[in-house]
């Protein structure tokens, strides 16, 4: 299994040992346009799969970022507070949102792998 997975809502999750890094996909940042503000969860917060975890605002609109899996937030990317446009320039690298301590790894199996995600966005056009 490749260590990166995707949600239908355009979040990515990359597993690194017993933690997971979460952000939004390149497709998501393209759809949003220029990101001007990111609100991140507090460190220590227990996130629930499919529930609000963060907010990303572009010039166009505000969008919720959902937790791809259950997990406790262990680190947030404070760079985004000062330089939210990093989400546009490097969405799947320096533009990561937060890290969680992995709970139920079985939840990862329900997410899309890279091929399935790419097929989905192909269909979205």
């Amino acid at each position: 299994m490749a260590n990166i997975r995707f949600t239908n809502d355009h979040e990515w999750i990359r597993v690194e040992g017993d933690t997971a890094v979460i952000g939004i996909t390149d497709y998501a940042q393209q759809q949003l346009g220029d990101v001007v503000f990111v609100e991140l969860p507090e460190v220590g917060r227990a996130l629930e799969r499919g529930k609000d975890a963060a907010v990303v605002e572009s010039v166009k609109a505000a969008s919720e970022v959902y937790a791809p899996i259950d997990g406790q937030v262990i680190e947030i990317n404070t760079l985004l507070l000062d330089q939210p446009a990093t989400v546009n320039s490097d969405p799947q690298g320096a533009g990561w949102f937060f890290k969680v301590k992995l709970g139920d790894t079985a939840q990862l199996e329900a997410l899309l792998d890279e091929t399935a995600y790419n097929n989905m966005i192909q269909e979205l056009g």
Binding site: G33, D34, V36, S58, V59, K60
Partner: peptide, 9 residues
Amino acid sequence: VQYQTGILS
């Protein structure tokens, strides 16, 4: 809503 370069630019 925008052309190639985006709303900001």
